[in-house]
């Protein structure tokens, strides 16, 4: 083994990653203690006042709670939906293999495209959803899906699930295929009902996959940005403002770069806490499975 050569192999990637990823991420911490506007050449140090201002800001708090609401909605519903789809499509028949590909398909579309498509569907006057409801005689259920502050966040959560449930279904199917057929067979011979088999055999053996799906979805939905940016840009009246759009708006609409950097750092800490919880859960899930 030639150590020198091996280090030489890593050098270009190491430089690229350090220079254009690690260094900027660290310098964000530095800017969070300044009042920089992002454009001018000078700035002052303001201590921890950006952090104080963040916690005092009503918009920041609103964004934080929206983040939590969005995350919980997506995690709970997407996990249940993808699990049900996986159970239905686990067998390798021709139709099921085709449907797996179809359900997975939205995951390869750009979130800009997905956001535009669903903006049309949700459009209050011309949109497909309201048109369909009206022609189905369900006029009382029509709504301004992304314009109504009470439902906009959930309307976008629905789109997020539409785009990614199929991808998570694949993780569950892989988990189901790893369960030995004999176990199910044995349970069936012992006279277990379908539900009992699911509860006592399938579900415990599926726990590692479930942990993966839940933790991935948690992180993925917590750092959501594109869909909300495209569909509502945080509106109406901050109803869909989440931390990432809040940071973006502070930096690029208000030119409060320092304050936005503090927001980024708080966001990173929250994400770190979630990731740590995820690692713990993964280890526990792995031990059980």
């Amino acid at each position: 083994m030639n150590r020198k050569t091996l280090w030489f192999f890593m050098l270009p990637g190491l430089l690229l990653y350090t220079g254009l990823f690690i260094y900027p991420a660290l310098s964000g911490l530095f800017y969070s203690f300044t009042n920089w506007d992002g454009v001018s050449t000078s700035y002052d140090f303001v201590g921890i006042s950006n952090y104080k201002d963040s916690f005092d800001s009503i918009v920041f708090r609103k964004a934080f709670f929206n983040n939590v609401k969005f995350m919980l909605t997506v995690v709970i519903i997407q996990t249940i939906v993808s699990l049900i789809l996986a159970l239905i499509l686990a067998k390798n028949t021709r139709t099921r293999v085709f449907l797996r590909a179809l359900y997975f398909f939205p995951a390869i579309l750009s979130s800009v495209s997905v956001g535009l498509i669903w903006s049309f569907i949700y459009d209050p006057s011309l949109g497909l959803l309201n048109t369909a409801l009206t022609s189905g005689g369900l006029e009382q259920f029509t709504a301004s899906w992304t314009g109504d502050a009470n439902i906009a966040l959930y309307a976008i959560a629905f789109v997020q699930i539409w785009a990614h449930a199929g991808q998570m279904m694949i993780v569950f199917i892989a988990g189901l295929h790893a369960i030995p057929e004999e176990l199910m067979e044995a349970a069936r011979i012992d006279g277990a009902t379908r539900f009992q088999i699911f509860r006592k055999v399938t579900w415990p053996l599926l726990a590692p996959s479930a942990t993966i799906v839940v933790s991935y979805t948690t992180i993925q939905s917590f750092k959501a940005f594109d869909l909300i940016f495209v569909m509502t840009d945080g509106g109406p009246n901050y109803a869909t403002e989440i931390l990432t759009t809040y940071i973006y708006h502070l930096a690029f609409s208000n030119y409060s770069f320092g304050l936005a950097s503090a927001g980024s750092m708080i966001f990173l800490v929250l994400l770190g806490l979630l990731t740590m919880a995820q690692f713990k859960a993964l280890r526990r899930g792995g031990a059980n499975g």
Binding site: Y23, A25, G28, G38, T244, I247, Y248, S264, L271
Partner: peptide, 24 residues
């Protein structure tokens, strides 16, 4: 160590590094 150094980047999304990246 090298592995950990690279993988550490997994928890930092571009939404966090976007501001300093932009200015850099």
């Amino acid at each position: 160590y090298t592995f950990v150094y690279f993988v550490a980047g997994l928890i930092i999304p571009s939404q966090v590094s976007m501001l300093p990246l932009y200015s850099l």
